[in-house]
Design a protein around this nucleic acid. Sequence first.
DNA 1: GATGAATGAGGCTTCATTCAT
DNA 2: CATGAATGAAGCCTCATTCAT
Lengths: 226, 226, 226, 226
Amino acid sequence: MTKKAAVRKPQYTDKPLSKSALRRQREREKRYQTIFKAAEKLFARQGFHKTSMEQVADRAAVSVGTVYFYFKNKEDLLVHLIDAIGYQLRNLLGKEFTRSDGSLDGLARAGQVFFDEFCTKHPERLAIFFRESAGQSEAVEVHRKKLFNKIITDVEAALIKLQQTAGRRFPSRLSAEIMAVSIMGMYERIAYHYLIWQDNRAADISAIGQDAVTFIVGGVKNLMKA
Amino acid sequence: MTKKAAVRKPQYTDKPLSKSALRRQREREKRYQTIFKAAEKLFARQGFHKTSMEQVADRAAVSVGTVYFYFKNKEDLLVHLIDAIGYQLRNLLGKEFTRSDGSLDGLARAGQVFFDEFCTKHPERLAIFFRESAGQSEAVEVHRKKLFNKIITDVEAALIKLQQTAGRRFPSRLSAEIMAVSIMGMYERIAYHYLIWQDNRAADISAIGQDAVTFIVGGVKNLMKA
Amino acid sequence: MTKKAAVRKPQYTDKPLSKSALRRQREREKRYQTIFKAAEKLFARQGFHKTSMEQVADRAAVSVGTVYFYFKNKEDLLVHLIDAIGYQLRNLLGKEFTRSDGSLDGLARAGQVFFDEFCTKHPERLAIFFRESAGQSEAVEVHRKKLFNKIITDVEAALIKLQQTAGRRFPSRLSAEIMAVSIMGMYERIAYHYLIWQDNRAADISAIGQDAVTFIVGGVKNLMKA
Amino acid sequence: MTKKAAVRKPQYTDKPLSKSALRRQREREKRYQTIFKAAEKLFARQGFHKTSMEQVADRAAVSVGTVYFYFKNKEDLLVHLIDAIGYQLRNLLGKEFTRSDGSLDGLARAGQVFFDEFCTKHPERLAIFFRESAGQSEAVEVHRKKLFNKIITDVEAALIKLQQTAGRRFPSRLSAEIMAVSIMGMYERIAYHYLIWQDNRAADISAIGQDAVTFIVGGVKNLMKA
DNA sequence: GATGAATGAGGCTTCATTCAT
DNA sequence: CATGAATGAAGCCTCATTCAT
């Protein structure tokens, strides 16, 4: 493990581990998570820039050096947070899409899940993904872009499948992507508006999501007609 | 002039100004603009945090002290940028809304104007408004929120007028707001996606906007039906 | 009038002044005083270092440039304040000493005057002389020292006269000076303690002064005995 | 360790320290002292304002960051200096007072100790306490006031004890305090006059102190008579 | 004489990162 | 592996002073 690479995640090697090695690995994983959670909370609450590595270390009850053992640098910490959030998000939404039958239901359910399972339950991740990860650095932006693109591609795929099932065609080759981007933007801003800026609206978010879904359904249909 | 205030804009007093005072004022306004533009460019290109006040001063060909003469501090510079952008944006969109007759046309035209007049012609402002102003500081966030809210309220008002004209009702009292937020989010992300992340798509943006508008129209109608 | 010298005080030349020149001179004197007073107040209230030249100018309702026309620089402003205070103080005390007949009464009356006429009526000058002028700069310290020395010399002279009148001798050649220094220190700290640190004790200061005088009288007598 | 706290002094916890931890602690204390001494010297020689943190760091042969590791900021450095001086001073004088039997001797001895042990041996501390700490900032002034008050209270207590021993009464309830303040002022200015302004008089200071003590004794007696 | 915009050196402070123990 | 003291570059900002108008 070189100086530059930082551990990040426990490595998975093939050779069986001794008991003590196992314990060490578990400890390591635990530490990693502690630091991760500390950063998540602090970045979401105070912002990425206003949070110092010392604060992260303090909250995780480890030394600064330890933070640097698990994460290459501060940016790396943010990137890992973003990745984890993206991973979770795609998992959550993906499940709904795959379960979907090519009707608009999958899209609708994904929207619900986004609000009910993700936004409401992980407001910190919401803030990090949509607020803190913006405008921070080149590397972070690259990661963010990649993630957005993946989710957009997921949605786009669902829309294309839908189009085929319905035996229709969207006006242009780009239409599906544009809709995917639009849906992403809608959800993003709705979450931002009602959950980050008005943090007591969690109760209404489900109903709000309903309207959003109705809106989307109308939009998609209208584009299929065209 | 108190310690904290910084000049910013020439003050408008009632007493007539002498010729030399007038020139002085013009010079001041010019300087202000020079610094403003320098910051706009740098913040958009390198990011707010990566840009130092010295760089701003250099690009504006003035001393650091002069920058501080016109702007209270770095944050103030960003806030003024945001405000100016918001002002321009509302002006642009507002004109379309007022010219509108309560049909969906106004909304459609506003969308076009957003892409064709604002995004394409002021990519730097786009980046500042949607990327750099996010996650920077409390004060900036407050300004951003205020602006977003204003635009959302504009759109919402147009939607309500539309509903009355059509003699229909949206499902809930919130629906119009939700749609407004959604539309804002759509446009934001479309602009971000095609103009910031893929900066050579300016040519397609008009066509993209078309699909977006179609989508919106369908969405709005669907919610009016409901 | 060279660039370096700054006007400071209106010059007194011998040739008779025209009417307009007279008025100009009066105006000048007035301005000088305005700035002087502004600085006095601000230095006393916020401290010398915490006060900027701009603040002085603002309070005097003139431009920064004007302040620099009347005073060479910031330090010069403080030095002039100190000098003026010293001048007033010596005048006040000196009168009592000269009126004195070589008895301890002069000393006693000077003490009273110091508290009743100077401290109570010019708390700002008190703060400047005993607080703000300390530890600021070489040049200021030199002035302060000179002034202290003058006053000390005055007191010393009074003590020596007293000794002669009484037909006694202080133990050493230094004794009178030591007593003068001591008296100065007493008054200084009493004023500081009761008027600067506890700013509502002005009412008691006369009574306090009484005790101080009694103390001094005892001290002087004891040293004459020795 | 929070952002604001800075280490300052090694913390005393109950758990026994390992050998290496002990050494670390010792090193830390040493560093702290080095920086402390550097600041003491520089503040006394060049003045607080004229001394930059970089100079302090240079003289202590550490980096600027290290200075800030041990002291929260520049003001903190001065405050700690003042506190240390006050602590030493009270210790020195306090010993004489407690050893005292309620006669004037204690007061006299304290005076001697002040001149012989403190002023002569620690001219830098003298300058910091009586010159540099004046008129610098609100926080510093608060500390200075507190310390002066403590010493004054000590002296006052000694005077009250004296009065009881002697079976006399001072004219007013304030008298003892006034005398304490006076004595403080005398010593302060004598030290300032002969040791800071005329720095070659250290040899005479003992004799000077004698006269001062005689003066004080006379003063106190005179007030007891009254 | 008065003005006030412009200057820029200089100071304080932060904090990501390193590395010896 | 963990620690945490040390580093020092870098950034923000202030403000005394100047000078063209």
